[in-house]
Amino acid sequence: MADKELGRVRSDFVTSVSKAVIKMLLDDLVEDGVLNDMESESILEENDSRADKARCLIDIVKKKGDPASSKMIVHLKSRDSSLYEKLGLSCSQPSQAASAPDPREPPDWSDTLIHTTEQFWKMKMDDKSIYHVTKDAFKNRLALLITNMKFTDGKFNRNGAEKDEENMRKLLSALGYEVVKYTNLTGKAINKALIDFSKHPKLKDTDSVLVVIMSHGKLGAVLGVDCKEPLCDNEEQDAYEVNNIYKQLSSDKCPALLNKPKIIIIQACRGEERGGVLVSDCAKPDLVCDDVKQPSPSPCADEEGLEDDTLRCVHKEKDFISLLSCTPDTVSYRDRNQGSILIQYIVQVFNTFAHQDDVEELFRKVMQRFEDFSVQNRRQMPTKDRCTLTRRFYFFPGL
């Protein structure tokens, strides 16, 4: 892999490359579309020494992956063949397919979160169309993580949910968020956890919050651990109305989050229907869903909640974005061993792209992963909901 080759020779490249060659490489990479003009100018103007310019250049290109790294190696060979040979590099001219990769081709997913560069952050801070992120605010990030695994009625236990909790906690921490974590809550306890979170003293200093809730669900609600099979439509159910999240974190109830991104992720079914044709051919499949009707009857879907996303007051509910694990009235799936499909895909996409993409683009890439998702004819499609972001929000991991 060319990016690993650049990593191998990084130290010698920084020590040996001349300023003139750096400028020529920048011109070549801008022409190829590997770098844009702002990135090129940032490398030259925001780094005083030749070594810092070289270090910044190779780090940015290396993070862009194998095709970009291959192009840099090719250009280095033509611009300074002696340095190319000294570094012990090898390359072949990228093919036409490599220079213009098919966007539908799956990327090389990263197992760990790729960090953004200081230069990328500084460049974005001059962009008035994004939410401002300072290093001080980054250090005060806060997230709420609620995972229901064990239920009073043991047949509703969510096998694999412990993997979801572990994966989300690691991701949130890597993104710079202090994680306030709860496990196995009733609907009332979920409500109290949100109220307590909305009063957390750290919120006044953060740049954003993330709220992740994972449980069984129905349309407009997530279910508490005391949920049961209702005997009739009007029987009270242990549930937390998702709409309350927006109320409890709204501008009037939580002024500390005024004009700050509030990112909501919910892994729970929103109904009982399948997202596609399903033929079950085993008694205990590894892939199950977070609807308590599977395999036994579940609460009827509430007619209100998430489908009704009309804003009563645009400034009262602002700067939200939500990713729900499935479309209305349908189920979402969870692997008994690896955890929810949604959470697996979120971790992969965020690890690989959060250093360069804003949250809406990250959510779109998560949704795109589900286009070809099919296990035993099961289908699932997450949906972005209730988005009132007025700017783009970047996580800037590793800032």
Rank of each mutant, 00 (worst) to 15 (best):
Ser82Phe: 14
Ala143Ser: 15
Gln348Leu: 09
Gly33Phe: 09
Leu6Ser: 02
Phe373Lys: 09
Pro107His: 11
Leu87Met: 12
Ile321Arg: 08
Gln380Thr: 03
Ile321Trp: 12
Thr147Ala: 02
His315Ser: 13
Val17Tyr: 02
Phe370Gly: 05
Ile146Gln: 00
His355Cys: 07
Lys77Leu: 05
Val17Ala: 04
Asn159Trp: 10
Lys4Thr: 10
Ser198Met: 08
Asn234Ser: 08
Gly176Asp: 09
Glu31Cys: 07
Val34Ala: 04
Leu287Arg: 01
Lys284Val: 15
Lys19Pro: 01
Asp238Arg: 01
Gln348Met: 12
Val14Gln: 10
Met1Leu: 04
Phe156Gly: 00
Cys282Asn: 12
Gly275Phe: 01
Lys262Ser: 04
Pro255Asp: 10
Cys254Ser: 00
Ser298Gln: 08
Asp52Phe: 08
Leu185Trp: 07
Asn337Ala: 13
Ala354Trp: 07
Ser251Ala: 05
Thr310Cys: 08
Asp37Ser: 11
Leu35Glu: 12
Ser173Ala: 13
Leu223Phe: 07
Leu171Asn: 12
Ile114Arg: 15
Gly398Glu: 08
Asp37Met: 11
Arg55Met: 13
Ser70Pro: 06
Asp308His: 10
Gln380Phe: 02
Ser70Met: 05
Gly65His: 09
Ser90Pro: 00
Phe120His: 15
Phe156Asp: 06
Leu342Glu: 14
Ser95Ala: 15
Thr183Ile: 10
